[in-house]
Design a protein around this nucleic acid. Sequence first.
DNA 1: CTCCGCTAGATTGTATACAATCTTCTGACG
DNA 2: CGTCAGAAGATTGTATACAATCTAGCGGAG
Lengths: 224, 224
Amino acid sequence: MTAPRAPEQRFESLVDALREAILTGRYAPGTRLVQEELAEAYGISRIPLREALRRLEGEGLVVISPNKGAVVRPLAPKDVVDLYELRLALESLALRRAAERFADLRESTRRRHAEAKRAIAARALPALFKLDRDFHADVAAASDNPHLVAALGAQWSQIMRVMHAYFQVEMYPEAVWDDHEAIVDALAHGDADTAIAVLTRHLSESRDAILAHLRSRAAAPNTS
Amino acid sequence: MTAPRAPEQRFESLVDALREAILTGRYAPGTRLVQEELAEAYGISRIPLREALRRLEGEGLVVISPNKGAVVRPLAPKDVVDLYELRLALESLALRRAAERFADLRESTRRRHAEAKRAIAARALPALFKLDRDFHADVAAASDNPHLVAALGAQWSQIMRVMHAYFQVEMYPEAVWDDHEAIVDALAHGDADTAIAVLTRHLSESRDAILAHLRSRAAAPNTS
DNA sequence: CTCCGCTAGATTGTATACAATCTTCTGACG
DNA sequence: CGTCAGAAGATTGTATACAATCTAGCGGAG
């Protein structure tokens, strides 16, 4: 997994590893990132590690305070609302552009749907999230707008952090993938409005489930 | 201008200086950024400079290739189309949220309009661009969605690069600021649809002017 | 004349070392 | 008993030094 990649992309691998650890919540929001610890963990000196942290700072995943150090960017409930609002706007644009090109993502989506069924049965949440992300990345790519893809990628990083922090298996019904299939069907017919309508409901439900969970958790902090 | 700021934010000042140089075209798209040259220019060693470049890489302003070095991210005509498309989606969302809150930006806009008149008379393009950016930053801030503000900020950095690379004074009529005033008037009345309609036309005109300029330049590469 | 391989110089990548700053603990004073 | 000054330890910031890699220019083979 921590493959000995070609030395030319050692740095990129480092950034990817750190990013993945942040997205999956292994480094949870607010966690302090001590340079020497991380450097030793990844078998490098602090110099390249610091550069990786700066890169992630630029991506909005890490906050660095002078002489204080780096922490995984914190997440508040309002972030959830703001992120889903932003994501809807970006993904709607992606759908509109993808529909104009009659993008056909039905095959890969069906394949992912089958995988998702297995993941739900196995209660494998991280695998589910990854399938979800891959699906939406396909939609983004179908827009043929690299800047939109990049912006959506950044938002998705934040969304992944929210999911790994707040989602439960029960909140992830298979119906999610029915929505995905409805979206790609509409896309293949060039029907952007339908696709966006489904997406809008899809995201509202997802967001509201998270917010409801947050409220219940705030009421009973130590449920576990 | 290169103020001796408090030592705690030396790094942030360095990033700001580099970013500003990129946005204003002093470091034009495609320019190679040689570490030792820049380090000497800013009176520091390569270590903090490299970190600054990594940060800008994360912001999408710089491209770094292993063992090759950093380059100001190149700009192609398609980038102009893609960026304006993305910007319209983001700024429409900002307008909608600002209108919901009846944000009143009329005063500051009128003030900027007056400054813009002077800048146009003086043919001071960089000053004009800055006024433009500040106006749109106000709109973004009025959305009360920090993630949207950040996303729009990143897009604006790219837009600024486009402007400084391709804009001419003749392409910047004072009518731009009439549009701005129409937008803030609509906002103050909570009329998001009107604001978005004006913005849509506003951006189309701006984009088309740039594209027309690019085409004419491609036809006659060595004018001037 | 062209193309290939090679060397010298330029440039990037990073480990080490040390300075600067912050944090925590201790102990004295009120 | 609380508070504050100070010192020790921990952590971050960066300059220097050197290794790794790339680039450009030269000379020889075909």
